[in-house]
């Protein structure tokens, strides 16, 4: 059942710019570094002995922001497909359970963001190589800096999907999203319990993997809460 729904979702996102956005996110993060290194490469290389590490640090300073922005934009697009002509009533009147409708939306979004994450890994390696940062490419670190933020951002995805599906007024999820972006940007001053801090991988223990586990755990929890709320509500 889920497989068929996901297939249908992928058909529905055609021509809506989803694939372009999935590409644009990671590309934008690297493009900012292209500008950064393009303008002041010498200066940046002088900052550290570990050129790859420093480059990765620069890249990863934008990753959480791009990720949260991507989540806000993609979830909003995703629900606007159904909201535009109130296709929710058509979709839910089909012989499918409501939880599988919700899960299929989440799966497609998580899948697109995962693709973005893979692309980010590839782009990081490619541009790092173009910059000639050395032959010892720290593959493991690069993968970590791409995938950890993704997993740590799952609660934000679950929350945004929840808000976006149950709001009739799109300005609510978008405003909440902008607020989340601001939180993500201010991660360094946020307390550890705030979900928007997690994609930055910062915490008091200096142990990024904690944010990953928190992300998966709380992400599941928020997903379940959102799903049950969606099931509970009448379709207008």
């Amino acid at each position: 059942m889920i497989g068929k729904l996901v297939e249908a979702e992928f058909l529905k996102i055609k021509r809506k710019g989803f694939w372009f956005l999935t590409f644009l996110g990671p590309f934008g993060v690297i493009a900012l570094q292209m500008v950064n290194y393009g303008v002041r490469k010498e200066y940046l290389l002088r900052q550290s002995d570990d050129d790859w590490g420093y480059f990765l640090l620069n890249v990863s300073s934008f990753t959480p922001l791009a990720l949260v922005l991507g989540i806000v934009i993609l979830t909003s697009f995703m629900t606007s497909i159904e909201n535009e002509t109130n296709a929710w009533k058509q979709l839910v009147a089909l012989p499918v359970s409501k939880w599988s409708v919700y899960l299929s939306k989440f799966t497609v979004l998580a899948g697109l963001l995962l693709l973005s994450t893979v692309l980010l890994t590839i782009f990081t390696i490619l541009y790092g190589t173009v910059l000639n940062l050395g032959h010892d490419i720290p593959y493991l670190e690069i993968i970590k800096y791409s995938f950890y933020p993704y997993l740590a951002a799952l609660p934000v995805l679950a929350l945004q999907l929840w808000i976006a599906t149950v709001s009739h007024n799109q300005s609510i999820p978008i405003t909440a999203g902008v607020l989340g972006v601001i939180f993500t940007y201010s991660a360094h001053i946020l307390p550890d319990w705030m979900i928007w801090k997690w994609p930055s991988l910062m915490n008091d223990w200096n142990e990024p993997v904690i944010n990953v586990f928190l992300g998966i755990g709380v992400g599941c929890l928020l997903y379940i809460i959102g799903m049950f709320d969606f099931i509970r509500r009448d379709v207008k």
């Binding site: 644009l24 900012l32 500008v35 950064n36 806000v72 934009i73 697009f77 606007s80 535009e84 799109q170």
Partner: peptide
């Protein structure tokens, strides 16, 4: 654009580089 997400995308594309 009809959806909220499209203008936001344009907005984000222009706003993020301001950080740099």
């Amino acid at each position: 654009f009809k959806s909220f997400a499209a203008p936001l995308t344009v907005n984000v594309i222009f706003t993020l580089p301001a950080i740099l």
